[in-house]
């Protein structure tokens, strides 16, 4: 410790640089260690995907495939209409993103930046909707959609996405809360409407948050199982998550195919994440706007 003190006295700049480098190295080591723990299960997933059933059944478990069967990926995918289901999932997820961004950013703006009577009660109700398990309202919800004639169509999967979700409304409201009111007030002085402020100021400023909504709503729509199961009746209209379950039966599971197909199913989410990840680090640059 005395050594570092010494260098501090000698030359502040180099020591700070060195300190930064040490911190960065520690940081990197920690990240790498965390990444390893995250990777282990994923590795196991990929390796199972490459095994044949004989090897899966051997004991003790092998941690890498001894005879990798690359054709598992193709065979799993071709064993049913996965390509069609993939496109269906993409279709539904597209609407989920569109609806998720539009509805939630509007509603959250209303809750975060406009004062109106009943706001707090309504917001509490929104929070409350998150707290009731989905399967308790499932039956009345199904009956309602059945009466509307929506069963067998994508409408029950798509329309609610345009009505906002409690999670995203809450989340965006928290992000908007960080945007100074002075920005809005000065815009209002210039005669801008709330819609205009939302469109021209809020959306661009909250880009990282919006992109988070995009990634998450894509992810959740992509992984949704219960709703497609309930509301889709035609095999040709199924989504991927129902499809994946064909490898799981009552007594047997084709683990290699299940894992292989699961790996492929992951790819689109990875791509979406990769494309958008630069936004998460862009930052909203709120401070700059205030001082400006």
């Amino acid at each position: 410790m005395r050594g570092t003190e010494h260098t501090v006295i000698k030359g502040g700049l180099t020591s700070r640089k060195r300190k930064k480098r040490i911190l960065d190295t520690v940081c990197f080591i920690l990240l790498a260690a965390a990444a390893l723990t995250v990777l282990m299960p994923l590795w196991f997933m990929v390796s199972t995907a490459l095994k044949d059933m004989d090897e899966i059944f051997t004991y003790p478990i092998t941690w890498y495939p001894h005879n990798p069967v690359w054709s598992n990926f193709k065979d799993a995918w071709m064993s049913a209409d996965f390509t069609g289901w993939f496109l269906n999932s993409l279709f539904v997820a597209g609407f989920a993103i569109l609806g998720g961004v539009l509805a939630n950013s509007l509603v959250a703006y209303g809750f975060a930046k406009i004062k109106f009577p009943g706001r707090n009660i309504l917001f509490t109700i929104i929070l409350g909707t998150m707290m009731i398990p989905e399967f308790v309202t499932m039956i009345p919800q199904y009956v309602l959609y059945a009466r509307l004639g929506w069963v067998g169509t994508y409408l029950p999967l798509i329309v609610p996405q345009f009505m906002g979700s409690a999670y995203f409304i809450f989340m965006l409201r928290q992000f908007y809360a960080g945007i100074p009111n002075s920005v809005i007030e000065s815009a209002q002085m210039d005669g801008a409407s709330h819609f205009c402020i939302w469109r021209k100021i809020m959306l661009p400023m909250a880009k990282p948050a919006i992109m988070t909504v995009v990634v998450l709503s894509f992810n959740w729509s992509w992984n949704d199982f219960l709703k497609p199961l309930l509301y889709l009746t035609d095999t040709a209209r199924f989504t991927l998550q129902i499809g994946l379950k064909i490898f799981v039966s009552q007594s047997n599971t084709q683990w290699n195919y299940l894992m292989a197909a699961s790996c492929i199913v992951l790819l689109p989410i990875i791509v979406v994440f990769m494309c958008l990840q630069k936004y998460f680090t862009d930052g909203m640059n709120l401070g700059g706007a205030v001082k400006g």
Partner: peptide, 17 residues
């Protein structure tokens, strides 16, 4: 304006959820 902004959710709540 506030009610207009939150209307998507209100409509969804009244009609669907």
């Amino acid at each position: 304006a506030g009610w207009l902004f939150i209307s998507p959710w209100v409509i969804g709540f009244i009609c669907l959820t």
